[in-house]
Design a protein around this nucleic acid. Structure first.
Lengths: 386, 386
DNA sequence: AAAACTTTGTTTAACCAATATACAAAGTCT
DNA sequence: AGACTTTGTATATTGGTTAAACAAAGTTTT
């Protein structure tokens, strides 16, 4: 739909601008907001009055004077409502209850025995129900539910394809919206993780971010211009099936030499491979005690991670790369070879200001990101590009 | 800079909306524009009156009645001004004079003997000067110059790095703006080609496009959401140096197994390779007459093109892939193996609606795209995203 | 051919959000 | 104590969109 301009749009733009300025800079005075946004003081006053009326912003008494009248400090009211963030993993369901500022209020997990849709949905409903029951009273109550899923999701919240769950065309959003009567956002697990790191983790304020979720497979969340990029049908970033050896091992996807065959937990499945264990936490323990096979394998995975990351750098030219997912636990052994390969292989101009870090939110990044997507859906966001 | 909303912004948004609606749908009536944009009839009338005053839109007499008063048809005034589009190639400089609708009015070429900056700039100035002299009189005259360059360009029009020219940090925009005193836009050659195909060629109206320029190297122009995507420093899309054989041939870029070593004209440089010729036009002639070596080589290049294209599909999830550049001439021999590899290797959901075509504008795509970038810079473009 | 209906485009008055300006309030500095 | 600063509010103005009425110019029905 085309967007036309009128006074209502102007108000929406400015109100959103003021709200998000307060949200990301609180405590802050009206005068400071006026200065930061470029809006007139009177305009800010009016909009703040409305936001206070909506209980999204609160006044928190006077602040420090800077040589004149003391400012009246404004806070974003994180407690105006709550959201539930969920992550659907292969063997486990995790959930958080968050306030509107992305702070975790409650945390809960449940094991998943199988991937039958009715069973999984039932478990999800139980978990969400528990969270909703545990939510503190607030003006808006539960304002949304966000879910991170290991698979492709379209723009309507339908899980198109989740190979590790054996799901196809599951309208998860409709199922959960019907059950709880609140807005539900469904996101790919890597996309949610990217949102989490962007807003609350290692990538705050970054404009062009590449988030690599390395675990049982490899997925990536791509942030372009501060926004999540989703392809034509809402499921870009399936980079795990990028060919890095054109004549390599055949993959279940139909292609050959896919990245995730060399740089994810799928490497543990190779029958002949000498390894002291076949799960990442155990291998990390072995590596910590200096076990040679574990060290060699992490070195190999780090190198192959670097090769794939180099390809993505040359295509996307990000400012920052964040490695997340289960393998981020192995940072001490993966980080070195990964950075070496990238430094050796990228073009000189890319090297200048590129940083590579590992997740700060650890296993919670996806849940927090999913919860945040629900928050943003509630608060609304609008921007003008020239 | 943050953009705030006020009435001036509203007018800009709506005027731009009306202008571009007329530009892309002319001839069209005021009533139809009102219906298409959702703007009130009165608003459209007012804005059209201003656009007519600016000579960007003209009234072209009555159209067909649809059961009532005959509409007064409006045209976008392509002849309100002209732009010069330039392509800087390795051995040649090409230029077009275009109207605001991207129609070619004049065309000119000049050979390039070497890549010394002063010499190249002098040749460019000569060519641009000739074009400006040949421009028909128009209300706004020459409104801009657009240049497509084989290298990385930053957001200020500085050529950061053009390996095939031996250029580094050339502020081409400043040089040409000083010489001609009109706005100059500098773009990467592949980005310009993508813009050309998007607006006037094989990719009209496509939202998510991947344009592959395969010639002396490989570059790609990425259109996301109908807009050109440029990375953090304005030079994404250097996909030619994507690794497709992790232990492959070393490349001049420092990496190994880069895509363009297997799927561009750089393959002709392999000493031992049995080939009847070492340029694309000659090889095409040989292939046409059934020469076995030429056929085998095109088959190999098509296959490797497909492998790289598959990687990009899995990352970007485009709706359409357009192959352009010098190698697009060899479509009859490249197209088959390329499509076969892609069909074999992409994920099932990608295959559903993905199309692969070859350039419609041929060698002129880049120039037309560069010219169009200059047109858009003149007309202005503004959009609101919710 | 007259009347009724349709479609196109303009005129008018009303609305409303941002703004500049003046002003009030509450502080600091000399 | 007086001058200056900073913060926040009140008021009148501006300017763009809009709904509604209207005028103009056509087609369709009777």
């Amino acid at each position: 739909m085309k967007v036309t301009g009128d006074q209502a749009l102007v108000k929406k733009i400015n109100k959103s601008l003021v709200l998000h300025t307060i949200r990301t800079h609180s405590p802050v005075s009206r005068a400071k907001v006026s200065e930061m946004t470029g809006l007139n003081k009177a305009t800010v006053s009016n909009l703040v009055a409305e936001l206070c009326g909506q209980e999204l912003v609160t006044e928190a008494g006077p602040g420090e004077s800077s040589g004149g009248r003391k400012p009246l400090m404004l806070h974003f009211n994180r407690m105006a409502g709550t959201v539930v963030g969920l992550e659907l993993r292969i063997r486990q369901l995790s959930a958080v209850l968050c306030d509107l500022g992305g702070h975790i209020l409650q945390e809960l997990e449940a094991p998943l025995d199988n991937h039958e849709l009715p069973y999984v949905v039932e478990q999800m409903k139980k978990l969400i129900g528990t969270m909703i029951a545990a939510a503190p009273p607030s003006p808006y109550g539960i304002v949304g539910i966000g879910v991170g899923v290991p698979g492709m999701v379209d723009e309507h919240g339908v899980v198109l394809f989740a190979p590790n769950l054996g799901w196809e065309m599951v309208d998860l959003r409709a199922i959960l919206e019907e059950a709880f009567a609140v807005p539900v956002t469904i996101d790919n697990e890597a996309n949610a993780g990217a949102q989490g790191e962007l807003n609350f983790g290692a990538a705050r304020g970054v404009r062009h971010l590449l988030y690599i979720s390395a675990g049982s497979g490899i997925g990536s969340g791509i942030i372009i211009g501060g926004e999540l990029y989703k392809g034509a049908r809402g499921y870009a970033g399936e980079t795990g099936h990028m060919t890095i050896e054109s004549g390599g091992t055949p993959c279940s996807c139909g292609s050959r030499g896919c990245w995730e065959l060399y740089a994810s937990e799928r490497t543990y499945d190779q029958p002949g491979l000498p390894l002291p264990a076949r799960t990442t936490p155990e291998l990390v323990r072995h590596a910590r005690s200096g076990q040679a096979d574990a060290l060699r394998h992490f070195d190999s995975m780090g190198t192959y991670l670097g090769i794939g990351v180099t390809n993505l750098i040359n295509s996307f030219n990000p400012e920052l790369i964040v490695i997340g997912g289960a393998l981020s636990e192995a940072e001490p052994w993966l980080g070195g070879p990964l950075r070496d390969v990238v430094a050796e292989r990228t073009l000189p101009y890319h090297k200048q200001q590129l940083e590579i870090t590992f997740s700060k939110l650890g296993g919670k990044g996806t849940m927090i990101g999913a919860a945040f997507a629900a928050v943003m859906h509630f608060l609304g966001d609008i921007r003008v590009t020239i």
